[in-house]
Computed example of a mutant assay.
Amino acid sequence: MNFDIIRTGRAVLHVTDLDKSRAFYDALGFIETESDEENIFFRGLEEHNHHSLWLKKKPEAAVEIISYKVRSEEDLEKLESFFTKQGSEVKWLEKGSQKALGKSLRVQDLSGLPVEFYAEMETVDRMLQRYDLYKGAKVQRIDHFNCMVPDVEKAYNYYIDELGFACSEYTAGEEEKIWAAWLHRKPSVHDVAFMNGPGPRLHHVGFWLNDPMSLINGCDVLASMGYAPNIERGPGRHGLSNAFFLYLRDPDGHRIELYNGDYLTSDPDFKPVRWDLDDPMRQTFWGHEAPDSWFDEASEVLDVHTGKKIDLKEPTLKKRKPTFVI
């Protein structure tokens, strides 16, 4: 691995009604960087890049891309060489072809997920100390992706051995087969998680909050605006990662997690935490059990070359009690 992936960067989601989407994400406390009749660009209060969430108006909801920031354009060239040698077809998007973004590289990863890498994005004013703009859950920054894939162990090995990610926590079952894994590049619990299930699909995008009260305030604001039915799960605390959480569904069903309270993983002698599949503490440290929709539903993803939805594959591990991933 001779390229430097920094962190989770942005998600590009297709939505069917920009006005409804704007009202929902504004209620959560996102900053709208700019918009037009077809697009809205959102960021968190502490983010200095142009956006971390791009909503595109389309006839059908889907996930266009999940993106990672790399250190330099040289890393993009190295990634192109890496994927090409493996037989993967890459797609270049030149600077100026996407709003605010420099040159980027797109590819379908090993699991079929549409993944993008970029080094440059326009910078904007950081709103961290604009406390007069704080509202809703006061969303600070993008934190991670959670992806449902048919073979978690295959994705786990590939992202660690080939792309240079590290594991913070994982769930193992019989014969030590990996059912779920939390992998990171930045020094936190995860930039991406993989969970066992029909895929490839995007389960959720996680956004970081300052503190648990921001999450509670977000619930109050959402309920007062009629969005209580959009709260799918939580608030509660995960056993895995120790995070305080809330899961929401936006007007098109895309799942958003509001997230706070994990820990540092930067020490070179850090050892991944193993959870047994049958350990109830892995699911919820406290809080209500997850509804069936949380295990069964996720956003479908697009082919980076054709723009069509990727066909789902059934998981290789035998279905049993659902695995919890954050």
Results as ranks from 00 to 15, higher is better:
residue 106 R to M: 11
residue 246 L to Y: 03
residue 42 F to H: 05
residue 257 E to D: 09
residue 204 H to I: 07
residue 277 L to V: 09
residue 172 A to N: 05
residue 230 N to M: 08
residue 213 M to C: 01
residue 59 P to W: 01
residue 10 R to L: 10
residue 324 F to E: 15
residue 303 D to A: 14
residue 287 G to Y: 10
residue 249 R to D: 01
residue 122 E to M: 11
residue 194 F to Q: 04
residue 42 F to P: 10
residue 186 K to C: 03
residue 21 S to E: 13
residue 19 D to V: 13
residue 130 R to C: 01
residue 204 H to V: 07
residue 103 K to C: 04
residue 177 K to H: 10
residue 89 E to L: 14
residue 47 E to P: 09
residue 293 S to M: 03
residue 264 L to R: 08
residue 205 V to L: 14
residue 59 P to I: 04
residue 130 R to V: 00
residue 206 G to A: 15
residue 71 R to T: 05
residue 270 F to L: 13
residue 7 R to Y: 00
residue 192 V to N: 12
residue 208 W to V: 06
residue 314 E to S: 12
residue 186 K to A: 15
residue 233 R to A: 04
residue 10 R to H: 14
residue 306 T to S: 15
residue 237 R to W: 02
residue 12 V to I: 15
residue 34 E to S: 13
residue 58 K to Y: 00
residue 323 T to K: 05
residue 138 K to L: 06
residue 248 L to I: 01
residue 275 W to R: 14
residue 232 E to W: 06
residue 193 A to I: 00
residue 73 E to C: 03
residue 78 K to R: 15
residue 283 Q to L: 03
residue 313 K to F: 04
residue 284 T to S: 15
residue 244 F to A: 08
residue 121 M to D: 02
residue 309 K to E: 01
residue 237 R to E: 06
residue 162 E to M: 13
residue 5 I to M: 06
residue 183 L to G: 12
residue 298 A to M: 04
residue 282 R to H: 09
residue 102 G to T: 09
residue 34 E to Y: 00
residue 89 E to C: 02
residue 271 K to G: 01
residue 317 L to I: 11
residue 110 L to S: 07
residue 219 C to K: 09
residue 277 L to E: 11
residue 85 K to P: 00
residue 176 E to T: 14
residue 316 T to I: 15
residue 255 R to T: 08
residue 175 E to I: 11
residue 14 H to P: 00
residue 171 T to W: 02
residue 321 K to V: 13
residue 91 K to D: 05
residue 141 R to Y: 01
residue 186 K to E: 03
residue 249 R to Q: 07
residue 2 N to G: 15
residue 73 E to N: 15
residue 222 L to D: 07
residue 217 N to L: 08
residue 127 M to P: 06
residue 2 N to I: 03
residue 151 D to F: 07
residue 31 I to K: 14
residue 141 R to S: 11
residue 201 R to F: 01
residue 287 G to C: 12
residue 170 Y to T: 07
residue 63 V to F: 06
residue 264 L to E: 08
residue 244 F to L: 14
residue 262 D to V: 04
residue 311 D to S: 15
residue 91 K to S: 09
residue 55 L to C: 08
residue 297 E to T: 04
residue 232 E to H: 02
residue 254 H to S: 07
residue 5 I to K: 10
residue 212 P to W: 08
residue 169 E to N: 12
residue 75 D to E: 05
residue 134 Y to L: 12
residue 188 S to F: 03
residue 37 E to N: 15
residue 52 S to M: 02
residue 94 E to P: 09
residue 167 C to V: 14
residue 193 A to Y: 00
residue 261 G to M: 09
residue 23 A to W: 06
residue 266 S to G: 05
residue 88 S to D: 08
residue 305 H to G: 01
residue 119 A to P: 10
residue 192 V to Y: 10
residue 159 Y to N: 11
residue 48 H to K: 10
residue 194 F to R: 05
residue 50 H to F: 12
residue 185 R to M: 13
residue 95 K to Q: 10
residue 218 G to I: 02
residue 122 E to T: 13
residue 283 Q to Y: 02
residue 57 K to Q: 13
residue 265 T to I: 08
residue 185 R to F: 05
residue 104 S to H: 13
residue 209 L to G: 03
residue 118 Y to Q: 03
residue 179 W to C: 13
residue 242 N to T: 04
residue 148 M to S: 11
residue 140 Q to T: 02
residue 317 L to C: 06
residue 265 T to A: 11
residue 243 A to F: 00
residue 314 E to H: 08
residue 304 V to M: 11
residue 165 F to K: 15
residue 252 D to F: 02
residue 77 E to I: 12
residue 35 S to V: 03
residue 309 K to T: 03
residue 122 E to W: 02
residue 223 A to D: 14
residue 54 W to N: 11
residue 67 S to W: 09
